[in-house]
């Protein structure tokens, strides 16, 4: 897929704003995750602004595409993109993690319309996505289900239970996107990004998904054109008649020199100084950021 220059510029602008709002929101609430949300920014924006058949004004529309943030700790990234897309006002981000908020530390579908599942305990989203995809076939609906996974998260066995059944039912209406950012929370000591080894250094997830019978597409997860092309292929399904795994190579903490590739930024609260540094690094002015 070739993006017009203006369209690409607009997506890139949204990505910068999203990155800043993620930091600002975590700073305000005094808690939350940073590295995992930042690596998924382009993927989330591409899905919510270009790929998915959704209508923010009708979050309960029957025929909408379904989205599952299986790596639920990236909630603040999802909320930011949903707010920018018009699901709720950007100002509501200030309630993140506060008492009575719809924006819980991990996504809670009983509180916030537009969420297709709750998550937070890792490794369970693909199973719920499998349910949506199987259900769509049974109900003869043509919506697509997208599941965003973390590369540490897929150490959970339940992911592979779902991968097996999805392949057995030839679910071409299900796509898993792996945010393959090379870091988990703590992981193994050794050479990789910083002093931590890649969660899967010896066993690339692409090979595992392939072994389970999935179609695999590998992309640069920060390149909008590559994300959009991969999603287009995934949605078409046929002639593959297989679920698709998009392995998105990303950088944890992407976009800010002080967070990139640093496992300590998995969950850490940015200071006011960090916010300032972020604006500079992103080349943004506060006044360009919606409130």
């Amino acid at each position: 897929m070739i993006l017009e220059t203006d369209a690409r510029k607009e997506l890139e602008r949204l990505a910068k704003i999203t990155r800043y709002l993620i930091l600002k929101t975590v700073h305000q609430s005094g808690a939350g995750h940073v590295g995992g949300p930042l690596s998924a920014v382009e993927i989330l924006i591409a899905l919510f602004f270009k790929v998915m058949r959704i209508d923010p004004k009708r979050p309960d529309w029957d025929d909408r595409d379904r989205f599952i943030l299986s790596k639920g700790h990236a909630a603040v990234g999802l909320y930011t993109v949903m707010a920018l897309r018009g699901y709720f006002p950007v100002s509501e981000l200030a309630t993140f993690d506060k008492g009575n908020s719809r924006l819980q530390g991990h996504p809670d579908m009983t509180r916030l319309p537009g969420l297709d599942i709750s998550s937070g305990s890792l490794g369970q989203g693909l199973s719920a996505g499998l349910g949506y995809a199987l259900g769509a076939k049974l109900a003869k609906k043509d919506f697509h289900t997208w599941v965003l996974l973390g590369d540490g998260e897929i150490q959970e066995g339940m992911v592979w239970e779902a991968a097996h059944v999805a392949s057995r039912y030839r679910l071409d209406n299900l796509t898993a996107i792996l945010d393959d950012n090379g870091l988990q929370q703590y992981g193994w000591r050794g050479k990789g990004r910083g002093d931590r080894r890649d969660p899967w250094d010896a066993l690339p997830p692409a090979r595992i998904f392939e072994a389970f019978g999935w179609r695999v597409i590998e992309i640069d997860g920060h390149d909008f054109e590559q994300i959009l092309s991969a999603c287009e292929i995934a949605r078409k399904g046929a002639p593959a008649e297989r679920p698709t795994a998009i392995i998105a190579h990303t950088v944890k903490g992407k976009g800010l020199p002080f967070t990139e590739g640093k496992h300590a930024w998995h969950s850490k609260v940015p200071s006011s100084e960090d916010l300032q540094r972020a604006l500079e690094a992103l080349g943004l002015d506060e006044s360009e950021v919606p409130r």
Partner: peptide
């Protein structure tokens, strides 16, 4: 549990 919410 550090603002994690009901899942944790």
């Amino acid at each position: 549990t550090g603002y994690t919410g009901k899942t944790h």
